[in-house]
Every structure is written in structure tokens, then in C-alpha cells.
């Protein structure tokens, strides 16, 4: 054995027409199917009750005040800050009103709004997982037991187990892989193709899926005590170091146009 010998295996060109192309076509079609399925399975957002909406929007207004405080003068900001602090102390902004203060955290399993959130998350995951497992099973059933092509780049031997699934030999170079590896390649590589066909909002691309799962974690957080959240916002408002965007705007403007006057 004089060093690594180039292993040559002659393959039937018909392999491509009967294996690679069908797998590719199936992958693309399932991607499109996944996209349309998740669009159809989306539930229309439910309307919120007036008091709950009011509570949320006042909180949003407080957050806007913190982020955009530079747009209004200090006096205006202080006026609003004090109004908000008074209202929170009275408790009139809460959904349950000033009397229901000691309600505590609602039980996650019985709160209907969060059930919807969890269902949505589960549906999304199902749409993702089920086609993948189905296709993997299909490939293992029909296309196993032989190598199909040679990868142009080498991999570590650990991949041999996964990519040469049905082949019995032990010395075969890792670069010779079975059809399962083509499945993995297309799984990752077809995302830009989905972007082209379905527009960028498609539900078939993996990266977007992961981000969606993170964003849907938020309904769970809404169960916490609104009183504490409001009190935290009041504190945040107190801490704000106010600066005014109009301070020095005329100098900035003149500097910007200094060359053209």
C-alpha cells in the first residue's frame, strides 16, 4: 500500500436520472408544500378584549416614551412621566382594574390566549418535522444499500457511519456516499431556491423557522404579573437621562450645509 490510492468506481450514469433527480424534485416540491401548508394552517389572530388591549398599549406607550424621549422637551416628558406613575399607583391601567390587584399569575395551561400560542408553535414544528422524517424513511426504504456519488471534498471518518449507511465495506473512502447524503445536501442547499420561488417570506427555509420558534416564545412570558411589569417601567422612566434632539439642531444643520451656502 503506497499511500492513499485514488479509489475508482465506475458508475452507471442512469444512477443520476433515477436517484439524484427524483430526490431533488421531491425535496423542492415538499418545500413548496410545507410553505403552503403552514400558510393555510395559520389561524386568524384573535381579537383582544378592550381592557387587555388598553393595558398592553399603555405599556407600549411607556416603552415608546423611554425609547423616543429625545423627541419631546424635558418638561413635556416629565409631565407624562408623572401622569404614568400616578396611574400605575392607582392601578387603573390594569386589565382587572384597581380592585383585582392581588390576582397573581394565571395558570399557563388554562389561559386560553397562551394555549393558542402553544398550539401555533406546535403546528409549526409539526409541519417542519413530519415531511423531513417521511422523506428520510422513504429514502432509506428505496435508495439504500449502495453508493451513489463521490463528494468533491474529503470529510472525517466519523461521517462514514451516517453517509454510507447501507454499504457493507469498511475501507471505502469517505468521499463515496449514499443517497442519504444527497438528501442532506439538498436540505441545506435548496434554501436559496425556495427564496427565489416563494419570495423571502417563505415557510420552507430553515433559518426562518428557528427565528419563528424564538419569537413565539413570547406569549408564554405574558403570563407574568402585569403589576410588576408596570412598576418596572415606572422605574425605567425615572432612570432616563433626558436629552433633547432639538438641542443644537440648528448647528448640526448649518454644518451639514456649510459647503453649499
Amino acid at each position: 500500500m503506497a499511500g492513499p490510492i485514488e479509489q475508482q468506481i465506475h458508475r452507471d450514469p442512469a444512477l443520476f436520472y433515477w436517484i439524484l433527480l427524483p430526490i431533488t424534485v421531491v425535496m423542492i416540491l415538499t418545500g413548496i408544500l410545507r410553505h403552503y401548508l403552514s400558510t393555510l394552517l395559520q389561524t386568524t389572530p384573535k381579537k383582544q378584549a378592550l381592557l387587555k388591549m388598553r393595558e398592553q398599549r399603555h405599556l407600549m406607550r411607556a416603552r415608546n416614551m423611554i425609547i423616543n424621549h429625545a423627541q419631546i422637551s424635558k418638561a413635556a416628558f416629565n409631565k407624562r412621566k408623572e401622569w404614568f406613575a400616578d396611574k400605575v399607583k392607582e392601578g387603573t391601567l390594569l386589565e382587572s382594574g384597581p380592585d383585582g390587584k392581588a390576582k397573581g399569575k394565571p395558570n399557563p395551561l388554562s389561559d386560553p390566549a397562551m394555549m393558542d400560542g402553544m398550539m401555533g408553535m406546535m403546528k409549526g414544528q409539526m409541519v417542519m418535522m413530519v415531511p423531513q422524517s417521511l422523506i428520510m424513511g422513504w429514502i432509506n426504504a428505496f435508495f439504500s444499500g449502495y453508493v451513489i456519488m463521490k463528494l468533491p471534498f474529503p470529510l472525517t471518518p466519523q461521517f462514514k457511519q451516517m453517509l454510507q449507511a447501507g454499504v457493507g465495506t469498511r475501507d471505502l473512502d469517505v468521499r463515496w456516499v449514499s443517497s442519504l447524503s444527497w438528501y442532506f445536501l439538498t436540505l441545506f442547499g435548496l434554501q436559496p431556491v425556495y427564496n427565489f420561488i416563494l419570495g423571502s417570506n417563505n415557510a420552507a427555509s430553515q433559518v426562518a423557522q428557528q427565528m419563528q420558534m424564538q419569537q413565539q416564545g413570547n406569549p408564554m412570558a405574558g403570563a407574568e404579573d402585569m403589576e410588576k411589569i408596570f412598576a418596572a417601567e415606572v422605574e425605567n422612566l425615572e432612570v432616563v437621562e433626558h436629552w433633547y434632539v432639538l438641542d443644537g439642531v440648528e448647528d448640526r444643520l448649518l454644518a451639514k450645509f456649510a459647503s453649499s451656502i
Binding site: A75, F77, L253, I261
Partner: peptide
């Protein structure tokens, strides 16, 4: 305390006037 800004200087206002007219 109230965060009121000082009125701008005459020179600045003149320049701004020129800028606006131009």
C-alpha cells in the same frame, strides 16, 4: 430644570435665514 433651550444667536438665525432662502 425645565429643559428649555436658550434662544439661538443672531448670527445663527441669519445664516439659517440665508440657507432657507437659498
Amino acid at each position: 430644570v425645565t429643559g428649555d433651550l436658550a434662544p439661538p444667536s443672531v448670527a445663527t438665525v441669519k445664516k439659517l435665514n440665508q440657507l432657507a432662502t437659498a
